[in-house]
Each structure stands twice: as C-alpha cells, then as structure tokens.
Amino acid sequence: MTIKNRLKNITRSILSNEWGTLYKVNFDFLFKDGKWKNLSRETYDRGSGTCILLFNREKGTVILTRQFRMAIYNENSSEEGMSIEVCAGSIDDNENPDDCVIREVKEEVGYEIKKVKRVFETHISPGATTEKSYMYVAEYTEDMKVDSGGGVEEEDEEIEVLELSFQKVLQMIEEKEIKDARTIMMVQYAQIHKLLKV
C-alpha cells in the first residue's frame, strides 16, 4: 500500500506568511494496525535551496562563510548566533538549482565559477520544514575571484568570507566550532571522496 492510500482528509491553514509560510496541516493517517488516526502537524515552507563546498586542490583550502543566524542565537547561553557554513542560498521562482548555486557563489564569496557537480540532495529537517537542499562541490582558483563577495545589500546580508585549510576545517568540526549540518556533510563528502589531501 502506498503512502497516498494511507492519507485522507488533508487540510492546510496558514499560521504565518512572512519570510516563508508556516502551515498547520490536519490529516487522517492509516496505521499498520488498520486504525485511522487524525493527526496535526506544523510545516514550514521557505522553498528549496543550494549549497556548495568550494575547494582548491593545489592549496588544500576550502571557502566557507560566517554570518549571523537569529534562529540559533540564545542570549541565555554561549550560542552567539554566528554560523560557519558552506556558501548557500535560496532558489528563486523557476530558477534551476545549478544556476542558483553559481549565482550564490558570486554574490556571497565573490568567485565566478562555471562548472559545478551536484553530489546529492537532502532534507535537513523533514519533520518540520519542506526545504530540499541541492548539494554541490566545485574547484576554485584565484583567477576566478571577481570581487570581495559579502552578500547582497538589498537582502540585508553581511557575510564574512573564509578561506581555510581543509585540515583546519576538520579540526573546527571536531572542536564543535562548525555545527551547520550541511557544512559537516559536505566536508565529510570531500573527505570520503579524497577531494583534498588531509
């Protein structure tokens, strides 16, 4: 039996419609014991996005970003809200993910790349958000640098560009300085596939 046959009476209502859309979803779900139960969930739809690990094989370096993320800021703990991440961004309406990631690289870190490799797709938090992340890797060289990056001012972005040795990045993950799931996955992908020497 398909999941479609185990769902009925799906209704959605909008709880908030600001940066993304927060829905309350009610539905009936057929459990394996043959009983139908009415369930309620909240789902957040902010569209899908891309992220990319830029690496320089010759120098043994990668490009990451550091920026403030309000969702992880906690004034009552040591969480300061600063997040070290791979270059990433949201896909515009009707935009191809490949085109999106190339655009984001230029906007955020100032490199003009032509060739990217999509390595996998993932749902980071499928229990709560609809977002799908398209994950990429690409080599960069110094001659691809066209400006300083830093994000788009109209989108209120303030992004610090970091060029770090791959060894340093692995250490930062080990020491819990890097906590972003996509970044950890991409670094581990690079490690498994030996994109850079360790």
Rank of each mutant, 00 (worst) to 15 (best):
M172N: 08
K176C: 12
L22P: 01
L22C: 02
E158N: 09
V62N: 08
T122L: 10
F55E: 09
D92F: 05
Y136Q: 12
N17T: 05
S40A: 04
V86M: 05
V146E: 10
E163I: 09
S165G: 12
I63S: 09
N5C: 05
T50E: 11
E157I: 03
I113P: 07
R69S: 11
N5Y: 02
A71I: 10
L170P: 00
F68G: 08
L22E: 10
T2N: 15
Q167H: 10
F55C: 07
S83T: 08
E104Q: 07
E75R: 14
I52C: 09
L15Y: 02
D180P: 00
S83V: 12
T141L: 08
V152Y: 00
M144K: 04
F120W: 02
L15A: 08
K8P: 02
Y111A: 15
D180T: 09
R46G: 13
S13N: 14
N76E: 09
Y111V: 15
V101R: 04
S125P: 00
W19Q: 13
R41S: 04
K8I: 07
E139V: 06
I10L: 14
E108M: 11
E95V: 06
S125R: 12
N17K: 10
R69E: 14
R12S: 15
R66G: 04
K194P: 09
N38F: 00
I184W: 02
K32F: 02
C100S: 15
E85G: 01
T21L: 04
I102P: 02
P97T: 10
G20P: 02
N74V: 04
S90L: 14
K59T: 13
K194C: 14
F55G: 07
D180W: 01
E85Y: 00
D147K: 09
E160F: 00
I10F: 00
G150K: 01
D93L: 13
K32E: 15
F120Q: 08
N9M: 09
K106A: 14
Y134R: 11
V62R: 09
L170V: 08
N74L: 04
G60R: 05
N96P: 02
F120L: 12
K168D: 15
T65Y: 01
Y44M: 04
Y189I: 13
G151H: 00
I84Q: 03
E75N: 12
V198G: 14
G81C: 02
P97A: 05
S165Q: 10
L54N: 06
V146M: 03
E107G: 04
R66A: 11
R12Y: 08
I52V: 15
K35C: 09
E155S: 03
T129G: 03
M185C: 07
S133C: 12
W36E: 07
E153L: 03
V109Y: 01
L30N: 03
N56F: 01
Y136D: 12
I173R: 08
T21M: 03
A88M: 13
G89Y: 00
P126Q: 03
V169K: 07
A71V: 11
T2C: 09
E121M: 11
N17L: 03
L7I: 15
L39C: 12
K37M: 06
L22R: 10
V161R: 03
Y189C: 10
A128N: 13
I3V: 15
E131M: 13
V109H: 04
E85T: 08
V161T: 10
L170D: 06
